[in-house]
Design a binder for these strands. Structure first.
Lengths: 336, 336
DNA sequence: CTTGAACTCCAAAACGTTTTGGTTCATAGT
DNA sequence: ACTATGAACCAAAACGTTTTGGAGTTCAAG
């Protein structure tokens, strides 16, 4: 409703002076500044966002694309993460818009729409693939962005990721140390970076321990996917005594499979993500999670620094994975 | 990068014609229209969002405020809901921005900032209170909005809500029909509309059945809140044989309390929200949820209609509550 | 008395659209 | 031959800021 012109008129000042007074420039006298601020507070004046954005050539917006296929949206923590990110972005005057990708449209189209329309100053990408077309597009366009998860892009780009390799290697070695000798892996789709790297971590541990890495089944990153993959593994003539699952959701599916199979209750299992639900499964699901609190804030910081033009190499955070000790990883004596 | 002027110049047309060609106005010849569209597609031109917004006096944005206190953000479904809402809003050219409320700031301030800065065309409010200052503010300002949950506002406003009264009444009567005679309620903070109305539903059922409604304990809408409330109820000389909980989270806390108390495993319980976790508790938690699929889309539709100026009275959706039959509500013979 | 600096303030331009109110030209009607 | 009618196009204004490049004072120094 109210704009600069009205406010200026009512104060007998020019819009220039009022604008500069509100922004705290030193070429406005103390007295005027206070008078202006008071009037602004009184009338609840705030500069029109679109006008400022147009003039300053900044969108004051960051978009995060949400894959719409269910089960791919990530753990419940995800909203908390977004919330934390948005909260910290807001301190820099940026807002976070969520951009779910409609069925039939690619995430790339989504990016294009935001970027070409100059609707955003930066983008946040989740669920990276090893070769990620969104990353390539944004790199080519020179738009700042941060990914949740690494990629195999040759050009460096800002990311925040957990060290899935180390985490899964450690988890697998832990099983080995507990005496397990047939350790399986339930893998997610290998075009996702996180799924691939977790598989690699398990494989490295197998090699390191001199164990076979034949016990690997890939499935959709869902409860059902985990269930089916587990059934496949359990059909193996020498079935595993322990299973390392790419995600908690898959692990929960695997637990369901174990419940249906004779002797299944003796098989140990571990997941990743620390889903709240995992605390209530039977047995409670041992799992892993990225270390660090308020990851959303970290994302926001990276985004702001990327927007400020810091080089990508300095905007890469690899967080260690920490183990969440519950019960499912020590279900039975491994002397089978 | 590219703007109308450049595009027009390269085509030997005026920016007016180019703009109108892209928008499909009839006062541009078929031939020109196609030529323009082709060139636009080729260069990837899209109108600058800020400029259009300024000119059209629309922000093309809808904000949803997220309470930042953990445990108040709602079930995991919530992100799916937001995602569905954003997806449908996008078909109308609107984007959804998430606006978490920083500690130390009120949700009202948040609204003020968005509204006064003309940053949004409408707002989506969640977790309404019986007397909700955000609602009053937006009503006074004449800004379109939709709430998730009703309020006691005298002026009607658009909302989408579940019929908590009927749901909790039915759940309580179901316990009565099963033979229970000491039916307790674990209530959420009564300034929240949903918590209040659920409590009223339970109370109505108690009256209707000629039972006492003394077995009521209020707690924070968290696992811990439910736990503490349950302990309080269990200290009662004539303890309940069944408990109706305001939320699943509280119900899960109550289950924890029951586990710690002798005979607790005979007490039936039911929650509300259909949290995924509830399927894995022991016993699996019977619960309720709002009927209807893709509620996010419903929110979006309501928002769009509110923006279009439809009267509030026609923008009120009260969805029935459906029962989710698992195990926790029939744990033991109620002949105690 | 002049000069220069310091302090306030402001007019005008620019950001990139959309829309208004035309103009020009050709064609059809009288 | 003159006037309507319609088709195709366009110049200019407007949206509300921020920023640039001064202009007008005042005051101290020379």
């Amino acid at each position: 409703m109210s704009n600069l012109k009205q406010l200026a008129q009512s104060l007998g000042l020019s819009i220039t002076t009022v604008s500069r007074a509100l922004d705290g420039y030193p070429d406005v006298s103390q007295a005027t500044r206070e008078r202006v601020r008071e009037a602004a507070a009184l009338t609840g004046y705030r500069p029109n966002a679109s006008a400022r954005r147009l003039r300053k050539q900044r969108a004051e917006l960051v978009a995060v694309t949400l894959p719409s296929d269910p089960g791919h949206i990530g753990p419940p923590h995800f909203l908390d993460m977004l919330s934390g990110c948005a909260e910290h972005l807001a301190t820099a005057g940026l807002n976070l818009v969520i951009a779910p990708v409609p069925r039939g449209e690619s995430e790339l189209d989504m990016c294009r729409r935001f970027v070409d329309g100059q609707r955003v100053d930066a983008m946040l990408l989740v669920r990276t693939k090893r070769r990620d077309e969104r990353v390539e597009f944004l790199q080519a366009r020179g738009i700042p962005f941060v990914t949740n998860g690494r990629t195999e892009s040759v050009l460096p780009h800002p990311y925040l990721d957990g060290d899935g390799f180390a985490g899964f290697q450690a988890a697998s070695l832990r099983f080995h140390a507990d005496g397990h000798r047939r350790i399986a892996h339930i893998a997610g789709p290998q075009d996702y970076y996180f799924a691939h790297v977790r598989c690699m971590g398990w494989q490295a541990a197998m090699e390191e321990s001199g164990l076979s890495s034949e016990l690997c089944a890939e499935g959709a990153p869902t409860e059902q996917g985990g269930y089916l993959a587990a059934l496949e593994l359990l059909r193996h003539p020498r079935r595993p005594t322990a299973i390392v699952c790419a995600t908690d959701e898959m692990a929960i599916g695997a637990l369901r499979a174990l419940r249906e199979i004779e002797g299944g209750e003796t098989i140990s299992i571990v997941g990743h993500d620390d889903l709240p639900t995992g605390a209530y499964t039977s047995p409670p699901l041992s799992t892993m999670r990225m270390a660090g609190e308020n990851l959303g804030r970290s994302f926001a910081t990276l985004l702001l620094r990327a927007i400020a033009g810091e080089p990508s190499e300095e905007l890469q955070e690899l967080h260690p994975i920490e183990f969440v000790d519950r019960e499912s990883h020590r279900r039975a004596p491994p002397n089978a």
